[in-house]
């Protein structure tokens, strides 16, 4: 890392965006105050940026405001009023919509008297026929239906006691950690765009009509995105720690 050290040495003046420099000196000042091996308590109100490792003293912003890492601009804390209740409400509706959308017919096509309709689960399991492609089927069913549903279930499990000011349920932190780890693998919104592309491809071939599940799923996509936007991870972890 001597390269880095050298670069940092010559670069401080060049990288002089005020925010960056402020962040560095602030965290440096904090560093000076700290002694390795102190009790755990003084560390409890520190927050380390997960993406650049700068350490800050956490000052919780007011509802609707955000605390941002001054070095890399990663959002650290973004509490919202009644976010917990809203997340539970959204998660419940996600669960209902997913179960409904998975079974209702999703799209149907017809041409010259022949007709076929498919549900989301059928689309996900389209590869089952031929041996090794079955693996892909399982993966698709997981990322479209099961992982979004599981994440909704987990967030209800974690948030419900927090909203009611009760102590967290057993293994709540494990549940929230799993839900966070699964976040990139929940691909409902990508599936929705895939539908649009598939529709255009088929449109020349046959007449396409939407089943009820198509509209359920469109609503679902919006809810899933909203759920992620509302969640302030820092506040949840802080609450789980109590």
């Amino acid at each position: 890392m001597a390269t880095g050290a050298a670069k940092g040495g010559q670069g401080t003046a060049a990288q002089g965006a005020p925010a960056t420099r402020a962040g560095k000196s602030r965290s440096a000042r904090r560093r000076a105050h700290m002694h390795p091996g102190t009790a755990e308590d003084p560390l409890a109100d520190l927050v380390a940026c997960p993406s650049c490792d700068a350490v800050f003293r956490a000052v919780e912003p007011a509802h609707g405001q955000r605390a941002v890492c001054t070095r890399c601009h990663h959002v650290l804390i973004a509490p919202r009023k009644d976010a917990g209740k809203q997340i539970i409400a959204i998660a419940l509706s996600v669960l209902v919509l997913i179960t409904a959308a998975a079974y209702f017919p999703f799209l149907s096509i017809s041409t010259t008297g022949l007709k076929n309709s498919t549900s989301i689960l059928e689309a996900a399991l389209a590869f089952t026929g031929d041996g090794i492609l079955a693996l892909l089927s399982l993966a698709l069913a997981a990322v479209i239906v099961f992982i979004p549903a599981l994440r909704a279930g987990l967030s209800i499990y974690v948030m419900l006691p927090l909203v009611r000011d009760r102590p967290p349920l057993p293994h709540a932190s494990r549940a929230f950690r799993l839900s966070e780890a699964l976040r990139p693998w929940s691909m409902a919104e990508i599936f929705a765009l895939g539908c649009a592309v598939a529709l255009v491809k088929v449109a020349g071939l046959a007449h396409v009509s939407f089943g009820p599940a198509f509209w359920l799923f469109s609503g679902l996509v919006i809810l899933v995105i909203l759920q992620d936007a509302l969640l302030c991870r820092y506040s949840v972890w802080k609450a789980l720690e109590r």
Binding site: S108, S117, A123, A126, F127, G194, A198, K201, V202
Partner: peptide, 8 residues
């Protein structure tokens, strides 16, 4: 591909 092969 999944949607097309399930639908068509």
């Amino acid at each position: 591909v999944a949607i097309l092969s399930a639908l068509v």
